[in-house]
C-alpha cells in the first residue's frame, strides 16, 4: 500500500496537523518508506491468531464507586492557555 499526496493531506486533517506544501513530498516519502516496512507484515499468516492488546493478557480490576477527588480547579487551570470564570475558553464552538 502506498500513500499519495491527497491521502497524506486527509490523514493530516484527521490528526489536526497542518502540512505545508513544501513539506508534503517529504511526508509522502517518509510515510511511504515506513509503510513499506509495515507491509512486511502482510506476508505473515496470522489466520486465527487472537490479537494481543495487553502483553500479559490481563483483565480489568475495578475501582470502588467512592468519591476520592476534591476540587482542584484553581491548580489545574494554572496550566490552561485561556480560562475565565472557571471555564476553559476556546474559539467559538459551532454545532
Amino acid at each position: 500500500m502506498s500513500l499519495d499526496r491527497s491521502q497524506v493531506e486527509t490523514v493530516a486533517k484527521l490528526a489536526r496537523l497542518k502540512v505545508e506544501d513544501q513539506e508534503l513530498d517529504n511526508y509522502v516519502n517518509s510515510l511511504n518508506s515506513i509503510l513499506d516496512l509495515a507491509d512486511q507484515l502482510q506476508a505473515v499468516d496470522t489466520e486465527g491468531v487472537e490479537p494481543l492488546a495487553n502483553p500479559l493478557d490481563a483483565t480489568a480490576r475495578l475501582r470502588p464507586d467512592t468519591v476520592t477527588e476534591t476540587n482542584q480547579r484553581e491548580k489545574l487551570q494554572k496550566n490552561a492557555p485561556q480560562a475565565e470564570a472557571g471555564l476553559f475558553l476556546v474559539p467559538k464552538v459551532i454545532d
Partner: peptide, 10 residues
C-alpha cells in the same frame, strides 16, 4: 459570549 469565545465546562 466570552469575548466571542465559548467556555468549556468538563
Amino acid at each position: 459570549d466570552f469575548h466571542g469565545m465559548s467556555g468549556i465546562d468538563l
